[in-house]
Amino acid sequence: MIITKKRDMDAILDNIRNYRHVFLLGCSECATLCATGGAEQLEEMKTLLTAQGKEVTGMFVAKTGCQVLGTKVELRQHAEAINAADCILAMACGAGTQTAVELFEDKPVYTVNDTLFLGNMTRLQQFHERCSQCGECILDKTGGICPVTACPKGILVGPCGGCKDGKCEVSPDVPCAWVKIYERMKRIDQLQEFCNTILPPKDWSKNTKPRIRNAKETKESP
C-alpha cells in the first residue's frame, strides 16, 4: 500500500489561510489503514478546523481515491457541499490528491499528507518500504528481497564494505539487505545462483517519468 503521514497542522492551516469553507476528501484504502484519511481522521480534522474558525461544508471517504472515474461518480452526491467550499483538503496520498485536482479544475486542492513510500503493514500501524517501483523487477534474482529498496544504496551485487555485524552503515536498525538476500538464497537452496550472478546495472529508462500504463493494449507499452 501507499504509506502516508499527516503533515504539520501549521503547514496545512497556512495553505488554507485565505479560505474559510473547506471540503474534506478521504480514502478508504491505504490512507485509512495509515490513519491519515479514514472516517475517524476526517472527523478529527473537522473538529480542528472548526476550532480554527473554518467551516467544513462536507466530507467524504472515497472508496479508492486514486480511481478517478469511480471517485467522480461517488462525489456526485456531494456536489452541493463541494460547490459551497472554497477549497478541498485531500486526506489521501499524492495520487488521491491529484484525483481531486483533476475532477475540480476551478477549485484549489491541498494535501494533508506527505506520501512516503510503497510498503507493507507488518504490525498494526507499522509500515516498511518494500518496493521502489523501478519498473524492472529483479526479485526473481534476489531471493524475493528487493535490494533496490532494502539497501540504502540500492546496489545490485552483494554487501558493501559498510555492513557491520549484518547491519547497514546507514543505521544499526537497518539490516543489511545483501546479507538478508544471501541468507534467504542459502535457505532456499539457491546459494550457487547467488555466487554466480552479477546483475547488470539497472535500466533506468524503464523509470522515465511520467510513466503511463494502458493495460488494455495488446502490445507492450514502451
Binding site: V157, G158, P159, G161, C163, K164, D165, G166, W178, V179, Y182, F194, C195
Partner: peptide, 10 residues
C-alpha cells in the same frame, strides 16, 4: 567482515 561469506563471494 561479519558475516564473512557474502563478503568473500563479493
Amino acid at each position: 567482515a561479519n558475516p564473512l561469506e557474502p563478503q568473500l563471494i563479493k
